[in-house]
Amino acid sequence: MSAGGDDERRRAELVTALGAVRARIAAACADAGRDPSSVTLVAVSKTRPASDIATLARIGVTDVGESKDQEARAKIAELAGPPYPPVELRWHLVGRLQTNKARSVVSYAHAVHSVDRRKLIRALADAAVAESRPTPLDVFVQVSLDGDPDRGGVPAAGVAELADAVAERPQLRLRGVMAVPPLGADPDSAFARLADVSHALRAAHPKADAISAGMSEDLEAAVRHGSTHVRVGSALLGRRSPVVG
């Protein structure tokens, strides 16, 4: 099959997958009495090629999630030239972020979903100043629901302190909270706890009303408990071999 045929086949696959994911979000919102437009679909494109991002943009998905700065920058550079037409994308860093990547991230990212320590808050804010970033960087405080340090996040008891630290920096905009359910945990129970954390946060920061929660396997449970940003990879893009180291 020609390259053009491969492109059309991949586009058809993504159109079908996107329809299925949007149908799941719509059904979950209907069950929860919510407007589907209140949920942002973030296409997590880690290990997928830049061509998939370009195709998703053409069919209406412009919020893109990456776990690694290096991979995001490589794809941004590739998408900046031919054969890809110019497109406005909103890049979301959804993986753990090292402070030495802060200056790179603030140069292109719309949001960072994995802020879990003061040192990272300072690094992002200072980098935004150094880069003369024109708009605040959206920030989600990552909550650890199981206390596993290898998975990132701050315990629920530490969310208020980090949120205050974010709010003190005009270069950052506190959007809300993010979490990944503990391994093997019931998603409903995990997302209910995250909703409680979000409710407590809004008492001090009313505008921090976003919840980044839910992935391919559990987005319905996340929407049920108020998620505003679902981070979907395999259900949208399929399971593929890594293409970026």
Results as ranks from 00 to 15, higher is better:
Ala50Asn: 05
Val180Asp: 02
Ala200Asp: 15
Leu124Asn: 06
Leu194Cys: 09
Tyr108Ala: 09
Gly184Thr: 10
Leu137Ile: 13
Arg175Asp: 08
Ile211Asp: 02
His113Leu: 06
Ser45Phe: 11
Asp126Pro: 01
Asp218Leu: 12
Arg96Val: 04
Pro85Val: 10
Ala200Glu: 15
Met215Arg: 03
Val106Trp: 04
Ala102Asn: 00
Val129Leu: 12
Pro85Asp: 13
Val15Asp: 05
Asp6Trp: 10
Pro36Asp: 01
Ile121Tyr: 05
Asn100Ala: 00
Arg90Ile: 02
Asp148Pro: 00
Leu79Ile: 05
Asp138Val: 08
Val87Asn: 03
Gln70Phe: 10
Gln98Gly: 04
Thr55Tyr: 03
Asp116Tyr: 13
Ser114Asp: 08
Thr16Asp: 14
Ala222Gln: 00
Gly214Leu: 11
Ile25Leu: 05
Arg175Gln: 12
Val115Leu: 12
Ala20Gln: 15
Ser114Tyr: 09
Ala127Glu: 04
Ser2Phe: 06
Val61Gly: 07
Gly153Thr: 14
Pro49Gln: 02
Asp164Gly: 09
Arg240Cys: 04
Ala213Arg: 01
Arg231Tyr: 10
Asp150Ile: 00
Ala30Gly: 14
Asp209Gly: 06
Arg231Thr: 08
Asn100Trp: 04
Asp6Tyr: 07
Gly153Ile: 13
Ser144Thr: 11
Phe140Tyr: 15
Ala3Cys: 02
His113Cys: 08
Val243Cys: 14
Ser2His: 01
Glu161Leu: 12
Ala57Phe: 13
Gly226His: 07
Ala128Pro: 03
Ala190Gly: 00
Ala192Asp: 02
Arg10Asp: 01
Thr47Asp: 11
Pro49Thr: 07
Gln142Tyr: 07
Glu66Thr: 05
Pro170Gln: 09
Asp164Leu: 13
His205Cys: 09
Ala43Glu: 07
Ala23Ser: 14
Ala222Asn: 01
Ala3Ile: 07
Arg48Thr: 15
Asn100Tyr: 04
Val223Asp: 10
Val230Phe: 10
Gly81Gln: 06
Arg133Tyr: 08
Ser2Met: 05
Glu88Tyr: 05
Val112Tyr: 04
Val106Gly: 00
His110Glu: 13
Asp146Phe: 14
Ala57Arg: 03
Val230Lys: 10
Val232Arg: 02
Leu237Ser: 00
His110Cys: 11
Arg173Cys: 09
Val106Ile: 11
Ser37Ala: 15
Asp63Cys: 12
Ala163Asn: 02
Pro181Glu: 09
Met215Ile: 07
Val143Met: 09
Ala28Asp: 09
Ala125Glu: 07
Ser107Ala: 15
Glu168Pro: 00
Leu145Ile: 08
Pro83Leu: 09
Lys119Ala: 15
Ala128His: 03
Ile121Cys: 01
Ala190Cys: 03
Ala32Asn: 01
Ala3Gln: 07
Pro82Glu: 15
Gln171Ser: 12
Val180Arg: 01
